[in-house]
């Protein structure tokens, strides 16, 4: 055992707090090492110095007074025991904590349940609202078709009397909005349904029918609800056909 380890264990060694084997090793080291031996003596002196302190004299009258004070306070506490204190006497602190934890968990579960129920109701409301808006949109589209200068951008294939895509032009202006504010998520779909566009004649590439399987139509809604980018492009299946022959 080296000096460092011995010196670390000396505070415990001097009062016999170490196990037999460690104590024997330290003893062996102390016989050989003068500095550690001197340090051990210092520790012993320090221990003697501080633990030799005797108790002061205590006042017996004061002790009796403390005893009677304690008994009086206990009697008073017993007389003034409230309902809560009586419960506390029957239930130990552990039970009280367990009960409190159980109540807390149940309350949290109840709050979570109520919150989830409210979420479901809101979702149902939104879906119902979207459906009713879509219906209204369909009926208004039918009316617009009669005027002849406005095309609906509704993508549903089954929309009645839809204008031909050949009349959709390059610059688009919003002419009518059923709902002024457009939200994200479910509302975005609703806004798509609720918006119609004023059109100018489209370039020749896009003049083919909307149902043309060779034309890819991509719609991008920008952050500004009034601006929507509609991009028509030939499908990839056509690209190799349009490629000029190398021969």
């Amino acid at each position: 055992m080296n000096c460092r380890r011995v010196q670390k264990n000396l505070p415990l060694y001097v009062e016999g707090d170490l196990d037999f084997r460690t104590a024997a090793k330290i003893e062996l080291h102390l016989e050989q090492c003068g500095r550690c031996n001197w340090l051990a003596d210092e520790y012993k002196e320090s221990q003697t110095w501080w633990s030799s302190d005797d108790l002061p004299e205590f006042d017996d009258a004061r002790l009796s007074a403390i005893k009677s004070d304690v008994l009086v306070q206990i009697d008073q506490a017993a007389q003034n025991r409230s309902l809560l204190a009586a419960l506390g006497a029957y239930f130990s602190r552990r039970y009280v904590f367990a009960l409190a934890a159980a109540i807390l968990i149940l309350s949290a579960a109840a709050v979570l349940y109520v919150y989830q129920q409210r979420g479901k109701v809101n979702r149902n409301d939104v879906v119902a609202d979207a459906e009713s808006t879509s219906d209204r949109e369909s009926s208004s589209d039918a009316g617009d078709n009669k005027s002849g200068n406005v095309a609906s951008s509704n993508n549903s294939e089954g929309a009645p009397k839809r204008r031909d895509r050949s009349q959709i032009g390059g610059s688009i202006h919003r002419s009518r909005t059923l709902k002024p504010s457009i939200d994200r998520g479910v509302d975005e779909q609703r806004s798509l349904n609720a918006t119609s566009f004023e059109t100018v004649p489209a370039p020749s590439l896009h003049t083919s029918s909307r149902r043309d399987p060779n034309v890819l139509r991509i719609e991008i809604q920008t952050s500004d609800p009034k601006i929507r980018i509609i991009w028509f492009a030939p499908k990839e299946t056509d690209s190799h056909q349009s490629k000029p022959a190398t021969d």
């Binding site: 670390k8 505070p11 415990l12 520790y43």
Partner: peptide, 17 residues
């Protein structure tokens, strides 16, 4: 407890020194 006692005895010795 051993660690606490060891540390306490060392501190007492330091103070006495």
């Amino acid at each position: 407890v051993r660690t606490q006692i060891s540390s306490a005895r060392a501190k007492i010795k330091q103070y006495r020194d």
